[in-house]
Write a protein that binds this DNA or RNA. Structure first.
Lengths: 226, 226
DNA sequence: CGCCTTTGTGAACACAACGTGAACCGGGCC
DNA sequence: GGCCCGGTTCACGTTGTGTTCACAAAGGCG
């Protein structure tokens, strides 16, 4: 199993002891920068962030993780009972939390449940829609069994679209989400990539990407239910 | 919000007090059978199951819920620290748990986070009126199940009207609210779009848009009562 | 009943949005 | 340096769609 990211560095001794006794691999990190440079080849298996005296640093790290610079899941917080208020309006920054001081078995149970949840949902790193399959680990794509030879940008764009089937995205949204947050350039760039994607998908599947005039593009068919 | 299913009946007084103070609607249920018969029309908003002295009954209820007989999500457990072992190998039976005795704010925070998680994922933004459904994410519309092929302006106009059913809008109001604030153009443009909308809605549903002579247009039936 | 106002209808027009092909440019590599 | 590859930009066609206009139909009022 991939090691856990633990903040701060050094972590509280009782946390370190519990992780060691439980047989978890883990690495302490002080901030986002050290976290990035210490990232294992296989990525992180999860994160435990202690919201202590310098809660700003802890929340900043959570935010960096959730922003996607540092993809770590799941994320568990450890915080004192007097800091429960700080959870307000920060739902998106954590998956679970545990009050400190903690019952060792509670923390163990929470970790186990988090990993169970993570493993249950997304076992293989695949994105599938109809005949299309994207393998996120190997950067390969295939349609109806036939492999697609996509460039980097084409792959990223198709991945993003296929991860949100049915939803319409404006060119601006695509530029910011696929290309990057501070992208400056013509919106028509998106058109060209869409065209190449459609061409590579083949005439038969080109209609997987629909253009919504005056709005943007949509991947896949409509979603009426949940 | 739909009421919470709470087990056992009666629940511990401190739990009842917290739910009441927090403004939650809730119903106590003793077992699966009473839970089924007490199910509200809109279903349950979630469940809080106390794993107490008769833990068998509690786990049985959880199993019934997860089996699908009684679709309730999310499911939060409340259990004493000496019962942490019982969580083992039962990951699929709960979404979160809280140790008893509990810090009121911890339980509140867990409830809030659970609801946030449940609501964040599956919220297809829809506008509905009678047989008409507009999906705001996919820019698609359907009437009586049949998809409508609307242009951008037609869609925007219909969306605006359907979002305020029964209300009458002058052409000027529609021009400013749908087309844009500083629109300069003939008011008859609205008529043409209304006509095309009626045509696409089909003869059967064309009367969804009523013209109010000398005033403007109204979507849906007039509202005399509530 | 006749006039005037308001709305429905059909068609024509103009333009914006999109698709398409090709050129440009910058980085990595031999 | 020359080459290749991939991303971006530009110019041009094409199609769709919003707008306008002229006329017909309908409704209100004296």
């Amino acid at each position: 199993m991939e090691p856990l990211l633990v903040h701060p560095d050094p972590p509280p001794p009782e946390l370190a002891r519990l992780l060691d006794l439980g047989g978890y691999a883990w690495k302490p990190v002080a901030d986002e920068r050290t976290a990035v440079s210490a990232t294992p080849d296989d990525g992180w298996g999860g994160a435990i962030v202690v919201v202590g005296d310098q809660s700003d640093a802890a929340w900043g790290l959570c935010r960096a993780i959730r922003k996607g610079d540092l993809p770590v899941e799941p994320l568990l917080l450890l915080l004192g009972g007097n800091r429960l208020d700080e959870l307000d309006l920060r739902d998106e920054l954590y998956d679970d939390f545990c009050l400190d001081p903690f019952h060792p078995r509670e923390l163990e149970a929470r970790l186990r449940h988090l990993f169970w949840r993570a493993g249950a949902g997304t076992a293989p790193e695949l994105v599938e829609y109809a005949d299309l399959v994207l393998n996120l680990e190997t950067y390969q794509a295939a349609i109806a069994g036939a492999p697609l030879d996509l460039t980097y940008m084409e792959y990223e764009l198709l991945k993003f679209l296929a991860q949100h089937p049915g939803k319409v995205f404006t060119r601006e949204t695509l530029l910011s989400r696929v290309w990057g947050y501070e992208y400056y350039g013509g919106a028509r760039t998106v058109d060209v990539h869409i065209r190449r994607l459609r061409a590579k998908l083949g005439e038969e599947h080109a209609n997987l990407i629909a253009t919504v005039r005056s709005v943007g593009y949509r991947f896949g068919q409509s979603r009426w239910g949940t």
